[in-house]
Amino acid sequence: MQKSPAQKIPATVVTGFLGAGKTTLIRHLITHANGRRIALIVNEFGEVGIDGELLKSCGAPDCTEDDIVELANGCLCCTVADDFLPTLQKLLDRPNPPTHIVIETSGLALPKPLVQAFAWPGIRSRTTVDGVITVVDAAAVAEGRFAEDEDALAAQRAADPNLDHDNPLEELFEDQLGCADLVLLNKADLLDEDAMANVRSEIGTHLRQGVKTLAISKGEIAADILLGLHAAAEDDIGARKSHHDDEDDHDHEDFFSFSITLPEQTAPEALLQRLAPVIDEHDILRVKGFVAIVGKTMRLVLQGVGARLSHYYDRDWQSHEPRATRLVVIGRAGLDEAAIRAALAA
């Protein structure tokens, strides 16, 4: 006998491009869960599970390490059967299952295959996609990193041989918007009213009818807004158009990532000064990781999106952790790993 929709455990898919602020959003969500038992499935892109570790260290009393499952074996949209469905099944089979499941995809993931997975036998009767939340870096969009202007895109293709045929970054961005039930325009504090209006206008061309956009800053938004959308997204999957609808799968050959371990740093500013020109010279999309600072007992979290770098101390280093700097670098295929390693180690 099938459970009624009211009895199904709701799941929220949080998607968005690299550095949009998904992890910050989820940290805020689980620390303001208001008694909800939330389980997290985190899909990390890169060798070092930065996002998973950040979430596990958030300190929320209602969210223990057992409630966070990290899948680092590839993009969830490519490993649904092998990784995602068994993980979801284990969460549902717990003696005391969560009241809500939140899935953070990697910046490279297509949300539609995940939504389709909820229609599989054994899953459909027990859980439902409450909503797909797409987090957008509004400041990046305002700067034209994902502009829909055909002339600008043509210039990008002409300047970059990697974009001669298709631009997977553009397609991925559009697919994440097209599958959304709610779009969060993060980093709104960096924009004035005119710039935000332009972002809304550009984003709106890719949204299904009725999908709302909300401007937020630092990932801060009430849980009651994010959870409880009751979209049942698996039931209207046909309306969520994708560039990859006619493909069996997609690849990520246009992206490359690697991790680098460095010794303790003398000061955050010194590392940022080394990073900035390297990011610019090699067109690095994303840098993130943990930094050990000489004389500091706390771990420094470093986040970089393009040329924008930020950092903060999150907690003390634990006794079993080596005091070292671990960074993940993400960029397009052809990234000169050796040159980047040499520049950062200098």
Rank of each mutant, 00 (worst) to 15 (best):
E234I: 01
D235M: 10
D235C: 08
D236N: 09
I237L: 14
I237F: 06
G238W: 00
G238H: 08
K241L: 14
H243T: 02
H244T: 02
H244Y: 15
D246E: 13
E247A: 11
E247T: 06
E247K: 10
D248I: 05
D248F: 02
H250N: 11
H252W: 07
H252C: 12
E253M: 07
D254T: 12
F256I: 03
F256S: 12
S259L: 07
I260H: 07
T261S: 14
T261D: 14
L262C: 02
L262G: 06
P263T: 03
P263I: 09
P263D: 08
P263C: 05
E264S: 09
Q265Y: 05
T266C: 08
T266R: 14
T266K: 11
A267V: 02
P268D: 03
E269W: 05
E269D: 15
E269L: 13
E269C: 08
A270C: 08
A270K: 12
L271C: 06
L272W: 11
L272R: 12
R274M: 09
R274V: 06
R274W: 00
L275Y: 06
L275F: 03
A276P: 05
P277T: 04
V278E: 11
V278D: 09
V278T: 15
D280W: 04
D280P: 00
E281I: 09
H282T: 10
H282K: 07
D283G: 13
I284T: 02
I284K: 04
I284S: 06
L285H: 08
L285V: 12
R286E: 10
V287D: 06
V287S: 11
K288I: 10
G289F: 08
G289E: 08
F290I: 11
A292N: 01
I293H: 00
I293T: 01
G295V: 06
T297D: 15
T297L: 11
L300Y: 03
L300S: 03
L302Q: 04
L302W: 11
G304I: 05
V305N: 07
G306A: 09
A307L: 15
A307T: 14
A307Q: 15
R308Y: 10
S310R: 14
S310Y: 03
H311G: 01
H311C: 03
Y312P: 00
Y312V: 12
D314A: 06
D314R: 01
R315C: 01
D316E: 11
Q318E: 10
Q318C: 02
S319Q: 11
S319T: 04
S319V: 07
H320W: 04
P322A: 07
R323H: 08
A324V: 14
R326C: 08
L327M: 10
V328W: 02
V328H: 04
V329G: 04
V329N: 03
V329C: 09
V329I: 15
I330P: 00
I330D: 03
G331N: 08
R332L: 11
R332D: 08
G334F: 03
E337S: 05
E337K: 15
E337A: 11
